[in-house]
């Protein structure tokens, strides 16, 4: 869907939202696979963004992510979500081990703040460029495995959405949460690549627990 809209060279806010949401889906799946939150044979290969991406086929996890992402998509449309965090937590001790942070910025806002690199909606960013940026992030996530500490214990994940106060929160489904932060003295952070559509700019970062 997003691709079609992008091909029309006039990516709408809605199209951009779909694209960003889709990116989250594959990014989250890639992280869950790479960090072995779920057994690797729960995943199957899917061609996406011109590369193979591993996506979970456990229906429970699929539904769970679907529920989260559909809400995130709504927030994206209203521009009320500013950050999405995938926290990987030790199953037994509940200590956060890794935080994969995706900052979401509205490009329009940046223009207001005077960034001269932000493109005007009149000159839409080509779809291929967006895709190659997404591909770069996903590849980066995969390559992270080489230097992230090996997690020995069983883990679970949690997705946090940082929204602003005006965001409409479906009652009972989303609750205020602890930020699941890692103590600064024990954490290392790596900034990853970013990608942008005409409406959103996603910046990725990972911080992980690193005890000497």
């Amino acid at each position: 869907m997003a691709t079609k809209q992008a091909n029309k060279q006039a990516i709408t806010l809605k199209g951009s939202t779909v694209l960003v949401t889709e990116f989250f889906k594959y990014a989250v799946n890639t992280i869950l696979f790479q960090r072995e939150v779920y057994p690797s044979d729960d995943f199957h290969m899917v061609k996406k963004y011109g590369q193979t991406v591993l996506v979970t086929q456990d229906p429970n996890v699929e539904n769970y992510l679907e529920k989260i992402l559909s809400q995130v998509q709504k927030w994206l449309l209203t521009g009320s979500v500013t950050q999405l965090v995938l926290a990987i937590i030790s199953k037994d001790t509940r200590i956060p081990l890794e935080r994969w942070v995706f900052d979401i910025k509205l490009v329009a806002e940046e223009e207001g703040s005077g960034g001269d690199d932000s493109k005007k909606p009149k000159q839409p960013k080509p779809d291929t460029e967006i895709q190659s940026e997404i591909r770069a992030i996903l590849k980066q996530i995969i390559s992270m495995v080489t230097y992230l500490p090996v997690i020995q214990e069983p883990t679970v994940f949690n997705i946090l959405a940082y929204t602003n106060d005006s965001a409409e929160v479906p009652a009972g489904e989303w609750n205020d949460s602890d930020p699941l932060a890692i103590e600064a003295s024990k954490s290392q952070q790596v900034k990853m690549r970013s990608f942008s559509t005409d409406h959103h700019r996603i910046e990725a970062m990972v911080s992980y627990r690193f005890d000497e």
Binding site: K67, T163, S166, V169, G172, E173, W174, N175, S177, D178
Partner: peptide, 8 residues
């Protein structure tokens, strides 16, 4: 003016 939300 931000909230940190997690799925229930």
């Amino acid at each position: 003016n931000r909230r940190i939300l997690s799925f229930h």
